[in-house]
Design a protein around this nucleic acid. Sequence first.
DNA 1: ATTAGCTTATGT
DNA 2: CATAAGCTAATC
Length: 745
Amino acid sequence: MIVGVHPLAGFDKLLHYKVPDPMRDAVQVGSLVRVPVLRTMRLGIVGEIGVPKDFPVEKLKAVVEVLHPFPALTPELLQLARWMAGYYACGVDSVIETMLPAAVRRGATVKHEKSLALVRRLTPDELTVLEKKAPQQARLYRLLAQQFRPQLKSLVLSRLGVTAAVATALIKRGFVREELRRVERVAYADDFAHGELVAAQPHTLNPEQAAVVADLESRLGEQKFGVALLHGVTGSGKTEVYLRGIDTTLKAGGGVLFLVPEVALTPQTVARLRSRLEAIAPGHRCVVWHSHLSDGERFDGWLALATGEARIVVGARSAVFAPVANLRLIIVDEEHEPAYKQDETPRYHGRDVAVMRAKLTGAFCVLGSATPSLESFANALAGKYRLLTLTQRVDNRQLPNIDVVDLRIEAMKHRSLTALSDKLVNAMQARFERREQTILFINRRGYSSSMLCTKCGHVEECPHCSIAMTYHRADEMLRCHLCGEQKAAPARCPQCGAPDIRWRGLGTQRVEEAVRRVLPRARIERMDTDAMAKKNRFREVLSQFRAGKIDVLVGTQMIGKGLDFPNVTLVGLIDADMSMHIPDFRANERTFQLLVQVAGRAGRGDRAGDVVVQTFTPQAEAIQFSRRADFAGFAESELKLRKEFHYPPYRHLIHHLFRGPNPEKLKFFAEQWARLVEKELGQIVELRGPSASPIEKIKDEYRWQLWYFTHAVIKVVPALAKLRAGFAWPDDITQVLDVDPVNLM
DNA sequence: ATTAGCTTATGT
DNA sequence: CATAAGCTAATC
């Protein structure tokens, strides 16, 4: 037998090896094997069974070892790896590497501990004989005879101060036997296992939930690929819908993959989920998968899934690759979260990979969010995904009153810029007197500063890409993040002529000081990455806040994730503009998401809460729509905007393509565009072709070309929309996924 | 990734 | 002509 192997050696080639006869039965596609590469031994994944195309069979080396009795990558995952290599333009080997936990990659195998057990009790006579002949063996026997359970071999031997030879001899006599047991660690055994058991009782569904669950269950019953977008407002009980789906799937013998953004994977949330799972599907082990696990913990989880001992995994981005057996349901919670993007090669998007994996396995995929990403929503509108909607809050809590404060007017009133508007200050004082709590959000998304006029709210944008330009203080220049356009930073606002147009958000510290001035007697706590450096500080502050020992909590978005504080009746967003001016074409989308998230924090059972949004651009659509909690309206207007000319066609690829070496895709893209431009202009467009130079050079070349094309096309061809209509990626890419359906043309 | 083996530059 | 430095190609 001859196999093709993807060695994990840093290059993307399939090398072939002979398989020695004794290993034949253990080797299959996906097996983890040890193979010789040049002078070293490397691990690799069997990618195919068959002979090499252009390499003499007689010169092949042989596989040295097969690591596991089961394939480390199921055929389905291997297929996914190949798809990812094409889609994200990276090597299959690097995908395989990210799919396998570090411990597996290093060749870890199952850890066993040896223990000694008594086979039978000896008669007094036998014991005397043994004592005479082999006193050490007799001592060992007596120790074991005193215990009820088998004892750890290493422990017993060191206790008695004898060597393994004694135990071996005793085994040979047939008095004692050796037992192997797999050692296991359970992640978060202390924290997670006995967390809150509050939510363990099964909930009754409201009619809306029941309808969605019924729909989902009938889909699951079909046992084939499909995607549903679950759009449920904050507090509408999406989790309950997931749980019913999980229950149905487990009962049908299927496996479940539950993805959440890393930040949402706190001990509390996992504990809650676990106890609900326990209640709904008793006896199922649930593997938790996230970046803070030790290698050993991750390995054990991986093993439990690969061997089918556990059928459900809850985890962050990298858990999409968990070897869940008979995968039937994939859930991606908060699917709009940018945390699903990996920012190292391979730069994959967890949500998109999840959809593709579902397709390859024939599983059902549920994407859930209160503010779906526009690409998913557009897919739902186009009928590719089934749209399920939850509009009612489970607790019937009312939507908060949202006030938008115009900071330009505020600045004029006070003749200087203030962190807290009068409205916000008054509201905070009222809460303090009523012993209710306030959260102030600082929006620190834009670490790169943009230029914003404090008088009229104007922001300098790139003329080609219509995203905010980044202000570089060192050389007083404005640069475009996308196309590289640059120009001198203006001294006066180009729109209204006001002299001072620099505004770089407020830090948590300054806001905290401002609050202290207006509420000297209030207990204020700050929560940002600096203040939370100490390990348990985060949880400590949260529990104090929950207990009402803190009046005002000032912090960044880290406050908002999956936490619910019942006594918070006021939420202030200090500067809504910051997320609107990040150099990202999803800026409006992000702003909308932030506002909805902020609004979801306000209010309590009996009364609607208040939200104060401070902004320089109160007319912005993202703010206006989120005020009315009108997601569909926002999506419609934003999608329309994206269809219009301003959005360079390659933008959606930036994350995937621009940051890694992807000559193939860039080439493909450049050529497509060249053809379109030629047709439109009626003249030949010269492509600086790929030279046989190293990857970096090609990359730079094509980057330049893309820049060139964008400029040339935008300048010369006004009707870009027409071009866009004629552009299509190959079927296999667009079939299931549109990374960004509007821009994917 | 790693490295043998080839080409080219540098210096006496 | 020796040595160093740069580059390419192969890994089964």
